[in-house]
């Protein structure tokens, strides 16, 4: 890792089990990650408004949250010019999601769960690439 600051990773998913899986896999792949778990979009947005300085912040956001869709979540982020980089995750296999995801500048990655350890590594690599570019 070439980053000086610790990477902050927010996991936003209403599925408790998936949160647990993601958390454990990310920690295994990179024990230095600062991981925070949110079971609703509202709580995640609240955290973001209370902690606006998130240059090294990345988020995994589920498209189908109970209180809002991932797209709603994205438009709030875009309105507030939050620089957070977002990775969308979904358990659905609806192909229209891919097209929608590419229209949002904050979205750097999109994947369908199931989560494998290799996908976790792929995500971390994407994040590192982003950081090197900036």
């Amino acid at each position: 890792m070439q980053t000086k600051n610790k990477l902050e990773l927010l996991l936003v998913d209403d599925d408790e089990v998936l949160l647990m899986i993601l958390h454990r896999m990310f920690l295994k792949a990179d024990p230095s990650l600062d991981i925070k778990r949110f079971e609703s979009g509202d709580r995640a947005l609240q955290y973001l408004s209370e902690n606006p300085n998130g240059d090294n912040r990345f988020m995994l956001v589920d498209i189908n949250l109970k209180d809002m869709t991932g797209w709603d979540f994205l438009s709030v982020i875009e309105e507030t010019n939050d620089p957070s980089k977002i990775i969308l995750i979904t358990s659905s296999v609806d192909s229209t999601n891919h097209g929608l995801a590419s229209r949002h500048p904050n979205v750097i990655h999109f994947f369908e769960k199931s989560i494998t350890f290799s996908i976790i590594k792929e995500i971390l690599e994407t994040i590192e690439e982003k950081i090197e570019k900036e």
């Binding site: 599925d15 089990v17 998936l18 899986i21 358990s91 659905s92 369908e112 989560i115």
Partner: peptide, 19 residues
Amino acid sequence: SHVVRAPLARMMGLINLLE
């Protein structure tokens, strides 16, 4: 597309985690 696959995704994630 949305509901049935969610528990499956969870299950597959758990298996991967175990591995």
